[in-house]
């Protein structure tokens, strides 16, 4: 069994993220999906655009920690990936 990686929403550059909020729009992948580094992991939307959050490592998506319409901020754990 590989190492379980908790994936946080990376910093958009705002640091404390006080002025940037995002809402989960959809999961393009399901639990159990094999992912490569950089693959689309999660789609979120801010005031100005939709964004795709890339997977930071290669492995298998084991857990989704946020769900559609949830509000997310920098640093929130969005997923758990079992590293390959």
């Amino acid at each position: 069994m590989g190492k379980m990686i908790e994936v946080p929403l990376p910093d958009f550059g705002d640091g404390d993220a006080a002025d940037l909020e995002a809402v989960v729009s959809c999961w393009p992948v399901t639990v159990g999906t094999a992912l490569q580094t950089g693959d689309d992991l999660l789609e979120i939307v801010t005031d100005k655009a939709s964004f795709v959050v890339p997977c930071p490592c290669t492995g298998i998506l084991r857990e989704q920690r946020v769900f559609e319409e949830d509000r997310v901020r920098t640093g929130d754990i969005i997923a758990v990936v079992e590293e390959a």
Binding site: L9, P10, D11, F12, G13, I44, A49, S50, F51, V52, V53, P54, P56
Partner: peptide, 8 residues
């Protein structure tokens, strides 16, 4: 209107 979220 879709962008990539930055990685660390």
């Amino acid at each position: 209107i879709r962008q990539s979220w930055p990685q660390s």
